[in-house]
């Protein structure tokens, strides 16, 4: 992991990132176009990408580069114009609406930038929501471990309106982890938080990957946030401009700025 490696990407060639970890999410020739004719926008243009199990990946890129679009396609929230997405061995293109819902429930966890929690449920109920919807019982040990790790064990009876922004996001992370999904997608999870709360949430996400053996794909525009990840993907104009391991915040900044 040297700076020269990143320099290669700055030259424009996309390096084939050596996947030393078995892939859990794989996209092949992924395209997403919005609108048609003159006004058509190609948000993603033939993207090939894979995310390894047990890794924390950050997806960066300029505004409008297609980060959110990519995340939505990988997370089965949207369907591609063309190309395939395979999550944990399942080809999303082959699934009907019902199976997609089930897949989201069982294999995918989400953390959004804001509005992650249902205001009418308390923290514990929000965390258990995916299981409740599936009529499944929670693994109590896992639940306890999660809420302890996330530091919200004493906030379980609070409703979202009684929690700080950082606490809300930690509850959201716990909710994403409760079903031990194959992968967690997070879209700017710290976008609305101050730096201390951000650091807390990012540390916890990293901990979830390192200690609880989870997989996280996080979209962010903040290099500092990205520096918590293992891997970095940089998108530019709907294409992958860089994919490699991460070092320091400075290294990330360099890649991002160089990739522009």
């Amino acid at each position: 992991m040297t700076t020269s490696q990143y320099g290669a990407s700055a030259a424009g060639a996309v390096p084939q990132y050596p996947l030393t970890y078995p892939p859990v999410v794989v996209a092949h020739k992924l395209c997403r176009r919005y609108g048609s004719g003159e006004a058509a926008v190609t948000a993603l243009d033939e993207v090939d990408i894979a995310f390894g199990t047990g890794r924390f990946a950050a997806v960066m890129g300029a505004s409008g580069s297609g980060k959110s679009t990519l995340l939505h396609l990988l997370a089965a929230l949207d369907r591609p114009t063309s190309g395939t997405v395979v999550v944990d061995g399942t080809d999303l293109g082959a699934l009907d609406e019902r199976r997609l819902t089930r897949l989201r429930r069982e294999k995918i966890g989400f953390v959004f930038q804001a509005f992650n929690l249902l205001p009418v449920l308390d923290a514990e109920e929000n965390i258990l929501l995916p299981l409740s919807l599936a009529h499944e019982r929670a693994d109590r040990d896992w639940f306890d471990q999660l809420v302890t790790t996330m530091g919200i064990a004493d906030r379980l009876r609070h409703r979202p309106s009684q929690l700080s922004g950082g606490q809300q996001q930690r509850v959201a992370v716990a909710r994403a982890l409760i079903g031990r999904p194959a992968v967690i997608f997070a879209d700017e999870p710290t976008g609305n938080l101050d730096s201390r709360a951000s650091d807390d949430v990012l540390t916890l996400m990293r901990q979830a990957v390192d200690e609880l053996e989870q997989t996280v794909v996080m979209v962010t525009h903040d290099a500092h946030a990205a520096s918590y990840a293992h891997d970095l993907v940089v998108l530019a104009d709907g294409r992958v401009a860089h994919h490699g391991q991460i070092g320091t915040r400075e290294a990330v900044l360099q890649v991002v700025q160089g990739g522009k």
Partner: peptide, 15 residues
């Protein structure tokens, strides 16, 4: 947005 969230975390249309 609540409904979207519910759907995202696995609520079916029926639910």
């Amino acid at each position: 947005r609540e409904l979207g969230l519910l759907r995202a975390v696995g609520a079916s249309r029926r639910q």
